[in-house]
Design a binder for these strands. Structure first.
Length: 423
RNA sequence: GGAGAGAUGGCAGAGCGGCUGAUUGCACCGGUCUUGAAAACCGGAGACGCCUCACGGCGUUCGGGGGUUCGAAUCCCCCUCUCUCCGCCA
């Protein structure tokens, strides 16, 4: 969420930004609602002032008639305050609804464009493997080596769920281990997080648990939802708190399961485990000082770590600087890593790193006191994927397949898998 | 699951219908003292919002939400969370 005064004081810039991002927001309506809100606050304040003054006279009033008069006036004022408050509440509700739809501002260097294809390839790494045989995709490979049971998953939980089996289980654990070992070396505090979170936390992080476009599973008769990513829990972890400035940046990492309904995604690259309802992920989360230089630097660090993880796995990838139209509400800038996936014959997204500046922290009320500024300031938050197991697994299986049908285990993972190849 | 206790400013911790936006301690900022620092002493300071060019003024805020009252941190109800004890359990 952007600051209300910022929106109203920078209508031009905000409006241009919304255009770039392909989001339509009625800034006029926001300005009008703010105006109305301020008037109601001013009115309410003055009635309340009168109310307090009037009430304070009562204990001093000796004359019973005077006393009765004051009490009657108090009752009257109480009603006035009540109706003003009700009106204010309605206006604030509308205002908030509009305000939430305004996306974050955008990094000046982020490519402007509506379409996914307008994201810029920042760099590529690694050699795309050349096979002198027809490579299989991960579904065929999994079948061949009994690594994934899709039918079983569907029988138990429906389409989109799966059982990993045999070496795939070892690979899942190994990928997680590999990522958390790396992050620990990089000075991140490791967390294994709850897989559920309250509505407030979801909303604070920018996920909407209700509505027909939701990607979130909610638990009936509770205000809990299954998390779509540990970004939700790690961001929510410090909500309503004030972080000591000297402790910034806070480098957090979290392992969790991720649950996504993938509503409306039917037919979209849905073969195998590319798009599933549940997967395991190691997530990076950062809280930095409230200035773009600090969060920008941290953002680069996250991307660097992601790249080193995939380099360590020996998987060819490219880095995309995501264009404005594809950024999503909270992101100020976003870089994705896409790994080469031979089964698809193209690159597929494996990680995503966003700088959300103060967009999330404003709603989550995560602040710090800066030495040179009065009051509390919203910190910057960032998040990125270290390893999303399902996607990484596709890349590993498909890139490491051999002419004889076997699959090599990436050397970096062998100490956890305990073998050099599958098959 | 059952029985109790509690939630107050960055932290700790008083207050329990009007004189309390809130005693006090720590931490914090400024000053005195000191060659400098520490200690000691003096002073300042919560957060958020609205009005104002500004000086400043006003309002909200004692876990969250309702209620009682002319008036609530203080009384009542619901919720959330924490702690202690009992039971159950991976």
């Amino acid at each position: 969420m952007l600051d209300l005064n910022f929106i109203c004081d920078n209508v031009e810039a905000v409006s241009a930004n919304c255009r770039n991002r392909g989001v339509s927001v009625d800034l006029q309506a926001i300005a009008a609602l703010r105006q109305k809100r301020n008037e109601l606050i001013t009115q309410g304040d003055s009635v309340r002032k009168e109310q307090k003054e009037s009430a304070a006279l009562i204990p001093k009033a000796k004359d019973p008639a005077e006393r009765e008069g004051l009490i009657a006036r108090g009752k009257d004022l109480r009603e006035k305050v009540g109706s003003l408050d009700a009106e204010l509440e309605a206006v604030e509700g509308q205002l908030r609804e509009q305000q939430m739809r305004v996306p974050n501002m955008t990094h000046p260097d982020a490519p402007v464009g509506e379409l996914e294809s307008q994201s810029v390839i920042a760099r590529t790494w690694g050699e795309i493997p050349k096979f002198d045989f027809k490579p299989l995709d991960h579904v065929q490979l999994a079948e061949k080596h009994d690594l994934i049971d899709f039918d079983g998953g569907a029988r138990v939980a429906g389409s989109g769920f799966y059982f990993l089996k045999n070496e795939a289980v070892l690979l899942e654990m190994a990928l997680v281990q590999f990522a958390i070992e790396k992050l620990r070396k990089e000075g991140f505090t490791l967390h294994s997080t709850p897989d559920l979170a309250r509505q407030e936390v979801l909303i604070g992080t920018g996920y909407n648990p209700r509505g027909n476009e939701t990607q979130i599973y909610s638990i009936a008769n509770t205000d809990l939802s299954l998390v779509a990513t540990a970004e939700i829990t790690l961001g929510g972890l410090l909500r309503d708190s004030i972080i000591d400035f000297e402790k910034l940046p806070l480098k957090y990492a979290g392992v969790s399961h991720c649950f996504r309904t993938e509503a409306g995604a039917a037919g979209k690259a849905s073969r195998g485990i590319y798009r599933v309802h549940q997967f395991t992920k190691v997530e990076i989360f950062g809280f930095t000082a409230p200035d773009v230089a600090a969060s920008d630097a941290f953002h680069k660090e996250i991307v660097r770590i992601e790249e080193e993880i995939f380099q360590g796995l020996g998987l060819p990838y490219r880095v995309l600087d995501i264009c404005t139209g594809d950024l999503g509400g909270p992101a100020y800038r976003k870089f994705d890593l896409e790994c080469w996936m031979p089964g698809r014959g193209e690159y597929g997204e494996v990680t995503s790193a966003s700088n959300c500046t103060d967009y999330q922290s404003r709603r989550l009320a995560i602040r710090t006191k800066m030495p040179d500024k009065k009051g509390n300031v919203f910190v910057h938050t960032l998040n990125g994927t270290a390893v999303a197991v399902s996607r990484a697994l596709i890349a590993v299986l498909e890139n490491y397949q051999q002419a004889d049908g076997s699959i090599l285990i990436p050397p970096a993972l062998r100490k956890w898998v305990g073998q050099d190849k599958i098959g």
